[in-house]
Design a protein around this nucleic acid. Structure first.
Lengths: 196, 196
DNA sequence: ACCATTATTGTCAAAAGTGACAATTAATGG
DNA sequence: CCATTAATTGTCACTTTTGACAATAATGGT
């Protein structure tokens, strides 16, 4: 009887536009007008679907965290086929889906303003911890002999290179940097395979 | 004859307060009222000393870049005494002056919103390139035999760990992460000393 | 004491952003 | 065709932020 609800679809579209704006202007710079323009809708629709500003931020946070977690899961599956450090790094730095810098930029934008919101902070931290765990577990599977602490440190370093790549994207750094960061991750991963 | 000018001192104070606010609220979230409150002055003073909003952003960018460059120079001096990879990483991750996350956070905040401002973008990129060069040169001095490309990659990786440390600070991550990132940098640096 | 210059504050108008509600349009089932 | 529900838009009031100017206070030299 009722008109069919577009809530899910429209919410996704708006959140995606929101994500774009946060990546480009920062969390506080992502005004409702910019979001609406980006999404190609009128401003009042934002409120209709996502609520007021606080609720919008919460929704974006949930969306970012969820997307990041899904990405982590996808990555975990892909990494299951990695036989050595080279495979692993190759997968990490070529996965196209991962190559959307907006997600990481929004993640960082949210994290800076998460001081007043413990829940957001915890979710963001958890999502990163989960990502680290996947890297760490993969490394452990590939090189079981390595000390856990060392494996964990390597995972942190690789994650760091990976994150840095996206966080630098607004500066459009020279193309070599991408290769260099990738190679750094590679060198780091190999340190596990060649125990001193 | 005239009243003595406090322009330099006050400008520094205000810029420091500005830096604090940008680190905490992001660039767009650093309103003049927050800055004024943080600096302990009335809002019109900001305009008196630094001009309008655009000029304030430009001034902050110049300040951040300058401070970062000075820090890089200081680091270069300190690193001149490093004899091996361990020394280098130890210096990097203990220098107290470097340990002010506000600078890096503001740097990142500025970088995301630098798309519209090519000059800012160039200055920010240069400051990071200079930092990388110091790391790279130090590594080359310590291990001259290493291939330049490899040295450069290692410098990128170490820089990445270093930057990540500060950029995560708003989430107040577990204390282990600091040690892990430090050890990742250490492992990476050592890869130069043990050529395959 | 007076002058020149600067610091500092007060105040107002304009602009941007947000919240909320009413009104209109559109689609589906009966 | 009608009723119901949701999508979509229009619009107004309120708050926040910014820009700009005037006015006052303070300081150092003459």
């Amino acid at each position: 009887m009722p008109r069919p609800s577009l809530k899910d679809q429209r919410s996704e579209e708006i959140l995606d536009a929101y994500l774009t704006c946060v990546a480009r202007f920062g969390l506080e710079g992502a005004t409702q007008e910019r979001i609406a323009a980006e999404a190609g809708v009128k401003r009042p629709l934002l409120r209709h679907y996502l609520g007021n500003r606080d609720q919008m931020v919460a929704a974006l946070n949930a969306h970012v965290v969820e997307t990041f977690n899904e990405l982590t899961d996808t990555l975990a599956v892909a990494l299951a086929g990695a036989l050595n450090a080279d495979d692993m790094v190759e997968l990490l730095f070529t996965e196209d889906a991962v190559n959307d810098p907006r997600l990481l930029l929004a993640w960082q934008g949210l994290s800076v303003s998460s001081g007043e919101n413990p829940e957001m902070r915890a979710d963001l931290l958890d999502s990163l911890e989960q990502f680290l765990k996947v890297l760490s577990d993969t490394l452990h599977r590939i090189v079981p002999a390595a000390a856990p602490a060392k494996t964990r440190a390597v995972a942190q370093g690789i994650s760091s290179c990976f994150v840095t790549l996206d966080s630098l994207s607004p500066l459009s750094p020279p193309a070599e940097w991408r290769r260099e960061l990738k190679q750094a991750a590679l060198l780091l991963a190999r340190t596990l395979e060649v125990p001193a």
